[in-house]
Structures are given as C-alpha cells and as structure tokens.
Design a protein around this nucleic acid. Structure first.
Length: 104
DNA sequence: CATTTGACAGGAA
DNA sequence: CTTCCTGCCAAAT
C-alpha cells in the first residue's frame, strides 16, 4: 500500500466496505468519508484507484443509479455486468437504488 | 499560491 | 427525456 491522501484513504476505506450485491452513490461515499459535498473528489479517487482488487469501484454509481465511467474492463459495460452478476437490480442502464443501495 | 481537471449533483431550458 | 450551466471539492502541476 502506497501512501494515500487523507481524503482518498477514507474514500477507499468506505468503498471497500460496500457489501456484495449492493451499491453506493458517490454522494453517499463522500458523506461517509467525511464530506457530503466532496463527491467530486470521490470520483477522482476512484479513477486513481490504487488497488482495484480491494476497492470495488464498480459498486459506486451516480446519484440516479446511473454510472459515468470505469477504469477497468470495457468501462461502463463491464461495470454493469459485474453488478448484475452480484445480484444488483438493473433497469436499463440504471440501478434500482431503492432496492440495491447500500445502507452504511 | 494560482490554475486545471474530473468516474458528480442539481437545476434550468 | 435530453442538453447545458453552475457549484462544489480534493489532488496534481
């Protein structure tokens, strides 16, 4: 583990705690990380993702259950596939947050 | 210290 | 429903 920035470290910690079959929004992760308004930095942290083995960034989606990008595989395509395989309820390109959102 | 960037969110047209 | 603009934050340069 390399040296992580204060906020990033918290973000990675939170994301790594997201259970399988559930998803969290960038806003929620930001809130659990200590700053509900830092969802921007959260996205940046995901892109930086130092250890995608321990950081399920695919379980982090947008506020409307939609996703914006993914640094691995075929991008969003892989992201949706992985979530679906984990049991997350999808409707089109959108995740049913009402059912699959993680409760911190 | 100033500027730029980005996997966002919310609102307006 | 789609598209554009604004506000916000942390990190990098």
């Amino acid at each position: 583990m390399s040296y992580l920035r204060p906020f990033y470290a918290k973000v990675y910690a939170v994301v790594s705690k997201i259970p399988k079959g559930k998803v969290a929004t960038y806003q929620q992760v930001a809130r659990l990380a200590g700053n509900s308004k830092a969802f921007r930095a959260v996205g940046t942290a995901m892109k930086n993702n130092p250890d995608m083995k321990t950081i399920p960034c695919h379980r982090v989606v947008g506020s409307d259950g939609r996703m914006h990008g993914y640094s691995a595989g075929e991008g969003v395509n892989t992201k949706i596939t992985m979530l679906t395989d984990e049991g997350v309820t999808f409707v089109g390109d959108r995740v049913q947050l009402a059912i699959s959102q993680w409760k911190g």
